[in-house]
Design a binder for these strands. Sequence first.
DNA 1: GCCGTTTTCGGCCCGACTGTTTTCAGTCG
Length: 574
Amino acid sequence: MDNLAIARVLAEIADLLEIKGENPFKIRAYRNAAEAIGHETQSIAALSDAERRALPGIGKDLAAKIAELAGTGSIAYHQELIREFPPTILDLLNLQGVGPKTVAVLYSQLGIRTLDDLEAAARAGRIKAIRGLGARKEAQILKAVTERRSVAGRRLASEALATADSLVADLAERAPLAHLTIVGSLRRGCETSGDIDILASASSPDAMQAFTDYRLVERVLAHGDTKASVLLSGGFQADLRLVPPESLGAALQYFTGSKAHNIALRERALARGFTLNEYGLFRLDDNVKVAGDDEAALYAALGLTFVPPELREGRGEIAAAEGSALPRLVEQTDLRGDLHSHTTASDGRADIDTMARAAAAMGLQYLAITDHSKSLAMANGLDEHRLLEHARAIRRLNERLEHITLLAGVECDIRADGTMDLAHDCLAELDIVVASIHSGHAQEAAQMTDRLLRAIECPWVDVIGHPSGRAILRREPVAADWTRVIQAAATAGVALEINGQPDRRDLNEQLARQAHETGAMLVISSDAHSPAALGQLRWSTLVARRAWLSADAILNTAALDDVRRRLRRARRTM
DNA sequence: GCCGTTTTCGGCCCGACTGTTTTCAGTCG
């Protein structure tokens, strides 16, 4: 049983307990454990009881429940809750304006257990008859049901950011004195985003007005003096918070989150005789403000080094910041080259020269041209003959280029049986080979693991591209024994890619961290199919940062000579 | 249900907005 499956059961218990009206701190304990387990790199099911209990947030009871789940496939306590409440009512929980109390009332008084039940009851006017609910609540619920059916939940960070950037640009024009920052999960660099959070710091309310008047607002969900929420056309929810300039630092901290990080930080503040809110850090005894305008100063006042937003997930960053043990995270400017890109030779949009100049203009010192191999016919993949011709063209151009060096490479398909899509003597002619899976994603774990291990055994493979093959929100990662695959890559000196396509980000942050801890080399790549897409290095860099990686963990932060020496082909033992 | 530099029991983050109320509970982030 994998970590995500365990986390899902614990999170569902938390939801059910909430509807039941249980002790909120007990609920939080289940939530915290689910969150921690979902992001743990080692397999929880494989751990001993003592090892589980050593994890933060897991005590005697939860360790026992996890053992029960791993051993029998279910938890009796969970089953009891399901007998009490049909699990379908959990669908009602994330409706705008409907929380656990309302769900409980709807179920106990009207027998509502599905979205359809709820809609029918609202249309029949049965909800407004309940004490504590009213006609407006009924209308709100009906709207929320309609909206739920028309829009999906979470979206790619790249889409959210594009929407957020347009919104901020508009606000900046109409409220020029406000200091605007995109906060929340986008600032933390998460791969998906549920809503768009914007912080405005200003002494006038202009930004608030501009926000609710924004041309793409479909519906205003809430609108107060300092806080407003809107639904944008396209399905995004956006929240704006307005704070005075002297609270900018505290507000940035607070609205960046995550929730787990904030709770831990506030507990730390209390333990040190302070209280922390979005307006500042205040001494408990006399309510004097000791920090608030500057975010780094706020962390310092709590005895911590600055925690980069990408690490604020409640995964040990506060303990590390206390001991000044946070890594210096890799930055996009640390990257000296990009080892994965495409041209018109296969399915790219620009020729070699255009890609090279675009990369040079970004300040990159080297760029690997890695077009697709023949079995990807849809992408006009290259056979041995065309590929070697392409490599000659790349090398000819290289002689004329001044500010950048091109590597002649390929993104070679890993066939279903783990063999390479191109002959080894052809691969041997190249400067770099990225090997990737593009088909047969549905293989069983054992077969997929063998396939990847076999690819890693090929002496001409330098990098495994987008190793898990996932498409965020669309396709699950392939099933494989990642511990074995990562170990094999580390032993063979094959690098693992962090792919920068915004819907791939593959390896993901957990596997990237595990790979680094296992001793595998990592590369941060764009997988650009156009000049503009070289900017996708932004997304893969974010993954590396969220995996706690510093520049020395990443192969392509090195100078080209050094990269050549460290590629598998230079180190292979025949 | 977890956890320990005031604690192995008694704590557990904090504030804004809405709707249904007569002072607040529920929801949200």
